[in-house]
Design a protein around this nucleic acid. Structure first.
Length: 479
RNA sequence: GGGUCGCUAGCUCAAUUGGCAGAGCAACGGACUCUUAAUCCGUAGGUUCAGGGUUCGAUUCCCUGGCGACCCA
């Protein structure tokens, strides 16, 4: 613990700024060396570096828009003002008033008339030159990461850009942003394990949502035709470079269209996001250039598996030959449990062999019914649904469905999921009778999709881990 | 769940074969009237992640645990 020697008697309540650093640079950047502008300004920020020089001294002040030099002269400040300035240390938050000028060495500066300590930094700041490299410190003390590392700030801004791009894209197309519950009496809408919590006065368990899907569909039943929710959802599963227990995604639903229409919508949205973030559609994925301007590829799950492993599993699938499929799975390094439905085995093979090889944007069209209990039956492939996953950079970023709207079929799917759960699959969907009742009032045909915003940020920013794009990723408490 | 690696001052990192725990930056005190990773002199700062073991002696070797990273399932 460092000595906390400076205990100010009060922390000021506000400081009247007249401008910020980037505005100063824009207005006065062309001042001549040694010239004084004659203009007084008041700025505020954090002291980044200090350079004492006897009866003059320099400091760099950093605000959200940039960094600028403060120039203190004893002749201007007097003994007391100079002493106050020299008492400032790296990390202190100060207000600075003075005249804009440029030093003889050509550094745009504010020649101080007065400084005000607004909030002291009581601890030593990280090394100015090396910053913070320990990722654990960067995640646990993200404020230090933001102060030291421009990439961390870029991440925050990029997420804001993605969110606003999504909102304007969908709002422009007539979608309404809605908010549905995070606390669910039944955790539905995704094949995932939920977090459980408890409501004391109702004396009932509630689940943090794993997806907003079933509530958004209730809105379609209620007559809304285009809705979306930028939502935080929660899945009680392993933590990895691609999984955080809480994560952000978009879900959107549009009545009277099918998944072909929705694929086109998602394709446009992904381009809009890339354009907003990167200013173009060329993407560098670990050295591979991907051009998002090209039409996204479409292939079936069988084609994707065949392309990566050379095995055509169509015949095996059509013959429902469990042993043949299981041996294909073992060949792909996938473990098969006795009770696993064939569709799950096929999906696991796809994930293990093909998914990570799909670098260019690819719609994998058609998912087995067993692992897609909320999508309509496929029009032509037996045992499949109209469920597409958009894969980019080897990562699934967007599931897209022709939404299942037949209550009897939905009930049958829930029953199938219940059998999976009974045989040990804790991720299987729990039947939601309230949702079935809603469906029985009639839901229009609809296309819907999800888009993992954390994952798309990772891909577009080239982040190696999801923790790089989540401000405060879930970690065990430190020691 | 399995494997590998990491954890030393606020930060970035050293410490020879197991032999006095150090440097730079930051902090604190001093010098210096155009510096910009300022410079110079000085001061202070440590449960070496925790606990145990081996040893005359452990940051170092061994065991258990914690946290994190990467890879695999």
């Amino acid at each position: 613990m460092p000595a906390m020697t400076r205990e100010p008697t009060s922390y000021p309540y506000r400081f009247e700024r007249t401008t910020d650093v980037s505005s100063l640079r824009a207005r006065f950047g062309s001042l001549e060396e040694g010239a004084e502008s004659g203009e007084s300004v008041a700025i505020a920020g954090r002291i980044a570096t200090v350079r004492g020089q006897g009866k003059v001294a320099f400091a760099d002040l950093k605000d959200a828009t940039g960094r600028i030099q403060l120039f203190a002269r004893q002749d201007d400040l007097g003994d007391e003002g100079m002493a106050e300035f020299k008492a400032l240390g790296v990390g202190d938050i100060v207000g600075a008033e003075g005249e804009v000028m440029k030093t003889r060495r050509g550094e745009l500066s504010v020649k101080l008339k007065r400084t005000t300590l607004l909030a002291p930094c009581l601890r030593p700041m990280p090394d100015q030159w090396h910053g913070i490299t320990n990722v654990e410190v960067r995640y646990r003390q993200r404020y230090l990461d933001l102060l030291m590392n421009p990439d961390a700030v870029r991440m925050v801004e990029a997420r804001a850009q993605v969110n606003s791009t999504i909102r304007s894209f969908l709002n422009d197309r007539g979608f309404s942003e809605v908010e549905t519950p995070l606390l669910h009496p039944i955790a539905g809408g995704a094949v995932a394990r939920p977090f459980v919590t408890h409501h004391n006065s109702l004396d009932m368990d509630l689940y943090l949502r794993v997806a907003p899907e079933l509530y958004l569909k209730r809105l379609l039943i209620g007559g809304m035709e285009k809705v979306y929710e930028l939502n935080r959802s929660f899945r009680n599963e392993g933590v990895s470079a691609r999984h955080n227990p809480e994560f952000t995604m978009l879900e959107a639903y549009e009545a009277y269209v099918d998944y072909d229409d929705t694929m086109a919508l998602v394709e446009s949205l992904v381009r809009a996001i890339a354009e907003a973030l990167l200013g173009g559609l060329q993407l560098d994925i670990d050295g591979t250039v991907v051009d998002l301007a090209q039409p996204f590829k479409r292939m079936s799950m069988f084609e994707a598996i065949e392309a990566s492993s050379g095995h055509d599993l169509r015949g095996v699938w059509e013959s429902r030959d469990r042993n043949a499929l299981a041996s294909a799975a073992r060949a792909a390094g996938v473990g098969v449990e006795d009770g696993s439905p064939l569709g799950k085995v096929l999906g696991d093979i796809f994930e293990a062999t093909a998914e990570k090889r799909l670098i260019e944007p690819t719609f994998v069209v058609g998912f087995p019914k067993d692992i897609s209990p909320l999508a309509k039956d496929h029009r032509s492939i037996e045992g499949f649904t109209e469920h597409t996953d958009l894969v980019l950079a080897g990562i699934e970023i967007a599931p897209i469905y022709s939404e299942l709207n037949d209550p009897a079929e939905q009930r049958a799917r829930f029953e199938q999921q219940a059998r999976s759960r009974a045989s040990g699959d804790l991720e299987a969907l729990v039947a939601d009778d309230d949702f079935l009742e809603a469906l029985s009032y009639g839901m229009p045909p609809a296309g819907g999709f999800g888009l993992g915003t954390d994952r798309i940020l990772m891909i577009l920013l080239g982040a190696p881990s999801i923790r790089e794009v989540i401000l405060f990723p879930t970690l065990k408490p430190g020691v």
